[in-house]
Simulated assay, not measured.
Amino acid sequence: MSLFSSRLINNMESENQTGVSEFLLLGLSEDPELQPLLFGLFLSMYLVTVLGNLLIILAISSDSHLHTPMHFFLSHLSFVDICFTSTIVPKMLVNIQTGNKVITDAGCLIQVYFFMAFICMDNLLLTIVAYDRYVAICHPLYYAIIMDPRLCGLMILGSLFISIMDTLLHSLTVLHLSFCTDLKVPHFFYELAQILRLACSDTLINDILMHLVTSLLGVGPLSGIIFSYICIVLSILRIPSIGGKCEAFSTFGSHLSVVFLFYRTCVGVYLSSAATLSPRRRAVASVMNTVVTPMVNPSIYSLRNGAIKGDLRTLISGTFSFS
């Protein structure tokens, strides 16, 4: 009898650690009265994000004058922003509407995979845009030679490859972890750091890998962006006319705004894990990074870029006149 009991206990412990099939997202709030407000707010923000970025893509693709390396990269950045926010907000809206906050381990891993892939792609695209502006302002005579279509395509493919390999590496290491029974996540989507906190097995290798990759793919591109913009500012300051300086500043001002917003929110969210922020406040801070930033990026592009602004007016007016 004791042998049977011992085996039964061992089987139950094994199921608790390795037979995990579901995770529970707690969301931003568990107050039932706030759910309709949260649903309407995030649905509106998601629709604005998708519509705004789609308009940017359509405006750039429909005008041959905008078929330049800079706008080529901007269109891909808008596409990545749509995919990035689409990995999070639709699932959150379904959870709020149905009240079912449970997700399978496969669904959790898929969300983590695509979230990491698109945020990495976003990071690398911002670095490419900074390099494009550096060449355009600091080496204008060689811009057409350096930024040829073949190189632009290779940079996009290289960013995609790096993002996929980075995310695949993290995902494969997560598959070897075992989890306990308490799988409540105080967040509205799944992050790698959140998953590692739930693991019962040793996560040393995962933690080392996460910090190493974050250093390489975070500090490296950011250093390149800072170096590019320092060179750009120094080059602009050497322009003799004030009008020329203003025109040069306007060409990369929108990109500088997007870069600042992206890294400011990332630092605020991911450094807060080592600070005294509660999980709930950290989840609220993540809204800025995952929802607000992709939503405001199209307005920054259109307001700072006269060509895109004009094309958007033409596109919208043509759509309404046609209807």
Results as ranks from 00 to 15, higher is better:
residue 1 M to R: 14
residue 1 M to E: 13
residue 3 L to V: 08
residue 4 F to L: 15
residue 5 S to C: 12
residue 9 I to F: 14
residue 10 N to S: 15
residue 12 M to Q: 13
residue 13 E to S: 01
residue 19 G to Y: 02
residue 22 E to K: 06
residue 26 L to C: 07
residue 28 L to V: 13
residue 31 D to S: 11
residue 32 P to Q: 08
residue 33 E to K: 12
residue 42 F to V: 05
residue 42 F to Q: 00
residue 46 Y to C: 02
residue 49 T to Q: 06
residue 49 T to V: 09
residue 51 L to Q: 08
residue 52 G to M: 02
residue 53 N to C: 03
residue 53 N to D: 02
residue 53 N to P: 02
residue 54 L to I: 12
residue 57 I to P: 04
residue 57 I to L: 05
residue 57 I to V: 11
residue 61 S to A: 14
residue 63 D to T: 04
residue 65 H to V: 12
residue 65 H to L: 14
residue 65 H to W: 09
residue 67 H to K: 06
residue 68 T to L: 01
residue 70 M to E: 11
residue 73 F to N: 01
residue 78 S to E: 00
residue 80 V to L: 10
residue 83 C to G: 07
residue 85 T to F: 03
residue 86 S to T: 04
residue 86 S to V: 00
residue 98 T to A: 03
residue 104 T to W: 03
residue 106 A to M: 13
residue 107 G to A: 03
residue 108 C to W: 08
residue 112 V to K: 05
residue 113 Y to F: 10
residue 115 F to V: 10
residue 116 M to K: 11
residue 117 A to L: 14
residue 124 L to N: 01
residue 128 I to C: 08
residue 128 I to Y: 09
residue 131 Y to C: 08
residue 133 R to N: 03
residue 136 A to W: 00
residue 139 H to Y: 09
residue 140 P to Q: 00
residue 142 Y to S: 15
residue 142 Y to I: 09
residue 145 I to Q: 15
residue 146 I to P: 02
residue 150 R to G: 06
residue 154 L to I: 08
residue 154 L to T: 05
residue 154 L to V: 07
residue 158 G to Y: 05
residue 159 S to I: 01
residue 159 S to E: 02
residue 162 I to G: 01
residue 165 M to F: 13
residue 166 D to Y: 15
residue 168 L to S: 14
residue 171 S to K: 04
residue 173 T to F: 15
residue 173 T to W: 13
residue 173 T to V: 13
residue 175 L to N: 10
residue 177 L to V: 02
residue 178 S to C: 03
residue 180 C to I: 12
residue 180 C to D: 15
residue 180 C to F: 10
residue 180 C to H: 15
residue 180 C to L: 09
residue 181 T to K: 04
residue 182 D to K: 07
residue 188 F to V: 12
residue 189 F to A: 01
residue 190 Y to L: 11
residue 190 Y to W: 12
residue 194 Q to S: 13
residue 195 I to R: 00
residue 195 I to W: 00
residue 196 L to W: 04
residue 202 D to V: 00
residue 202 D to Y: 01
residue 202 D to Q: 04
residue 204 L to Y: 11
residue 206 N to A: 06
residue 207 D to E: 13
residue 212 L to W: 10
residue 219 V to M: 11
residue 223 S to F: 11
residue 226 I to Y: 05
residue 227 F to G: 07
residue 228 S to A: 06
residue 229 Y to V: 12
residue 233 V to I: 14
residue 234 L to I: 07
residue 235 S to H: 03
residue 236 I to P: 00
residue 236 I to F: 04
residue 240 P to R: 02
residue 246 C to M: 15
residue 248 A to Q: 02
residue 251 T to K: 09
residue 254 S to D: 12
residue 257 S to W: 06
residue 261 L to I: 10
residue 261 L to H: 07
residue 263 Y to N: 09
residue 263 Y to F: 10
residue 269 V to Y: 04
residue 272 S to H: 03
residue 273 S to A: 14
residue 273 S to G: 13
residue 273 S to L: 15
residue 274 A to D: 13
residue 275 A to W: 11
residue 275 A to E: 09
residue 277 L to N: 10
residue 281 R to A: 15
residue 283 A to P: 00
residue 283 A to Y: 01
residue 288 M to L: 15
residue 289 N to A: 14
residue 289 N to G: 07
residue 292 V to N: 03
residue 296 V to A: 04
residue 297 N to E: 12
residue 302 S to F: 09
residue 307 A to K: 09
residue 315 L to K: 04
residue 316 I to V: 07
residue 316 I to S: 06
residue 318 G to K: 08
residue 319 T to F: 05
residue 320 F to Q: 09
